[in-house]
């Protein structure tokens, strides 16, 4: 993931389901096609819901990284 340039990042730690997912949806709505977005979540439900939403919406999950026990989801807006 070192070569990926993140366009916009949001720290949603401390916010519970559906907070991190709704934050990602808000970011996708505001982003341009091709932008790379990152959301950091400490909510366990995000592990399932965020990748599932990205797949349903046909965007691309570029990766997940550990950030002090939370997870940073890195997503590319594809359309």
């Amino acid at each position: 993931m070192e070569n990926v340039v993140i366009t916009k990042e949001s720290d949603a730690r401390g916010s519970f389901c559906p907070g991190p997912l709704m934050e990602l949806i808000r970011m996708v709505r505001d982003a341009e096609v091709g932008d790379v977005l990152a959301v950091i979540s400490s909510d366990a439900g995000s592990q399932k819901d965020l990748p599932a939403w990205v797949a349903k919406a046909k965007h691309e999950l570029l990766g997940q990284e550990d950030v002090d026990g939370a997870v940073k989801f890195i997503i590319k807006k594809t359309h």
């Binding site: 389901c17 559906p18 997912l21 709704m22 949806i25 399932k48 819901d49 599932a52 939403w53 349903k56």
Partner: peptide, 8 residues
């Protein structure tokens, strides 16, 4: 519903 379930 907006989430991956019928209610949050």
């Amino acid at each position: 519903f907006p989430l991956n379930a019928v209610f949050n």
